[in-house]
Design a protein around this nucleic acid. Sequence first.
DNA 1: GACCCGATCCTAGCACCGCTAGACAATCGA
DNA 2: TCGATTGTCTAGCGGTGCTAGGATCGGGTC
Lengths: 192, 192
Amino acid sequence: MSVQERKERERAVRERLIVATARELAEQQGWDAVTTRRLAERIEYSQPVLYSHFRGKREIIGAVALEGAVEMAAALRAATSAADGPRARVTALARAYLDFAARNPAVYDAMFQLDGGLAFAQEDTPEPLKDGFAALLESLGEVAGDGVHPALFTEVFWAALHGLATLSRAGRLPPEDAERRVELLVDRLAVL
Amino acid sequence: MSVQERKERERAVRERLIVATARELAEQQGWDAVTTRRLAERIEYSQPVLYSHFRGKREIIGAVALEGAVEMAAALRAATSAADGPRARVTALARAYLDFAARNPAVYDAMFQLDGGLAFAQEDTPEPLKDGFAALLESLGEVAGDGVHPALFTEVFWAALHGLATLSRAGRLPPEDAERRVELLVDRLAVL
DNA sequence: GACCCGATCCTAGCACCGCTAGACAATCGA
DNA sequence: TCGATTGTCTAGCGGTGCTAGGATCGGGTC
């Protein structure tokens, strides 16, 4: 069985290589530049090899999205755990979220702008996505206010962050006031 | 000069036909289905005719976006003018915004998700886009609260609405709580 | 050690995309 | 009526995601 195990290991390595290369290429030149031909060339295999790992380009985007969700959840938890008190935690959370989106635009797109074929807000939602929402919920639930369901509050706060992230990056909001928008959002939405 | 005028008129009619057809096709089958070939076939001209009106597909998307901006501004003003008092106005505005996004997903995408080659938040931003923001500002400025710049408040509120609109439509938020999210957003963000 | 067979990979090609060069036809002004 | 100009079309370029089918390589068996 050792031979088969070795092959499976090598396959897993190659699959990670595909996802990492897709992500790298997307961050460098945008998702439009991530074509199956270029991706195949970069991993030094032919195009059809990609399709032995993924059903298509969409699934590759989905794999990058899941990887990103894990990282984002970790980044949010790291930021909030270093903050004292609800207010500081929420502010840190908001900054960390927008910072992640700004620093990893391609990954953020894979998660929330592109179609990676992933289910959201459902039972069959992949675990990393659920955990990403859970990371938001942990800090936001405590400032939802009386009589407001923590999950509902988290959805609204998340939507606001998502709007700021996407509109900012698309140049639809003036960049200079970014910090003041965050402060306003936290001050108004969170019950402290 | 009459001949030339007639030709110009006919050209203008055809240009409107292109934009209207692109919009229709996008609403029916999504923007992916709006290819230059299909569009040309629908208007019963050959592909190159499109390029005598627009530089490329991007500009066609931009034209649909501008058309949408005019309609959205009108829809927002109609909704707010029928409401009494700041609170009712802001609620009506939020509902009208989300309603427009839900009813015209392809137009909304052209405006805010796709690249239509339009400038935002700059001096050379096309008038319809500026006016769309102005329509938001008219109702939101009066609930910004003391010491908060109306434009900044409008940006934050708009971002929140945009986040709700996009996440809802992508199936990333449970659809059943849509109304409660709007109420929460208005209650918290607006100073009444 | 030789052979067979199955897994693995690549070449080549499909139908489609956005976009454009150049041929052709229709229309206008002289 | 003729030449020039304007307008439109056919055909084709290089690219896309994806796949069928042949070649090759390696492991298991005699």
